[in-house]
Simulated assay, not measured.
Amino acid sequence: MARLLVEQQLEDWGLPHTSPVTRAAVAVTAELAANAATHGRTPGRDFELRLSLTAAHARVEVSDTRPDRLPPSPDAPLAPPDTATTGRGLLLVDAFATRWGCEQRTQLVKTVWAEVDRC
């Protein structure tokens, strides 16, 4: 659902679903939303998705209620063992996004964000 919402909103803002920015933002959204649903979930609470578009970039933010579970630094996303069937999501985010990171919004909420340049 998060992927579809981002794709539709970017199209409403004038970026076709086939544009490289939209495709990258949708891929990033899928990974960040999956991570939030899998690793950032607290019973009775969900994640929040925010999307913004400027002349320079599209920004995807996914917030969850597990600030104790921070992703690795964007400077060195960890690759899983070759035999692992999961654990490559942040490598995909790193490949599609121009910049990404994580910040603690409050004592109970963290936000993982990624920006995709429009140029």
Rank of each mutant, 00 (worst) to 15 (best):
A58S: 13
T83Y: 09
E7F: 04
L10S: 03
K110F: 00
G87S: 04
S19C: 06
V28S: 07
V21D: 05
L92S: 04
L51R: 12
R3I: 03
A95T: 14
T98F: 01
E11I: 03
S52D: 14
T106F: 02
S63P: 01
V93C: 03
L49R: 12
D117F: 03
L108W: 05
E7C: 08
A76K: 09
D12T: 14
T85L: 15
A37H: 12
L5V: 09
V26K: 12
V21C: 06
A79L: 06
A76M: 08
T111G: 01
L51N: 10
V26H: 09
H17Q: 15
R41E: 07
T106R: 11
R66T: 10
T98S: 15
P80L: 06
A84F: 02
R50G: 14
Q107R: 11
M1Q: 08
D64I: 02
P67G: 07
R118Q: 06
H57V: 00
D68Y: 07
W113E: 03
A56I: 00
E11F: 08
A33F: 07
A95M: 08
D117Y: 04
D117M: 01
A58F: 01
L10Y: 07
T42N: 08
A2D: 15
H17D: 11
L108A: 14
P43N: 07
L92V: 14
L10K: 08
T54R: 09
P67R: 12
G14N: 11
E115C: 05
S63G: 10
A30P: 01
W113M: 06
L5W: 10
T98W: 02
L10Q: 06
G14W: 08
R66N: 07
Q8L: 14
R3G: 10
M1S: 13
D68C: 03
V112E: 05
L90D: 01
K110Q: 15
R118H: 02
V112G: 00
P74G: 10
A97E: 04
A76Y: 02
R41Q: 15
D12P: 01
A84Q: 08
L5Y: 11
D68W: 07
V93T: 03
R23Y: 05
T42C: 02
K110I: 04
V60Q: 09
V26G: 00
R99V: 01
A36P: 09
C102I: 05
G14K: 10
S52N: 11
D64W: 00
L51V: 11
Q8V: 05
P80S: 09
F96I: 02
A58Y: 02
A55T: 12
V21W: 00
D82C: 01
R41A: 11
D12S: 15
L91T: 06
A84V: 00
T86N: 06
S63K: 05
P77V: 12
V112C: 10
T106H: 12
D68E: 15
D82V: 06
R45D: 06
A114F: 02
A30S: 14
A58I: 01
T85M: 10
N35P: 00
D68M: 04
F96E: 12
P16E: 12
R59C: 06
G14S: 11
E31G: 02
L70T: 13
S52G: 15
V112P: 00
T29W: 05
T54S: 15
A84E: 11
W13V: 13
P81H: 14
L49D: 12
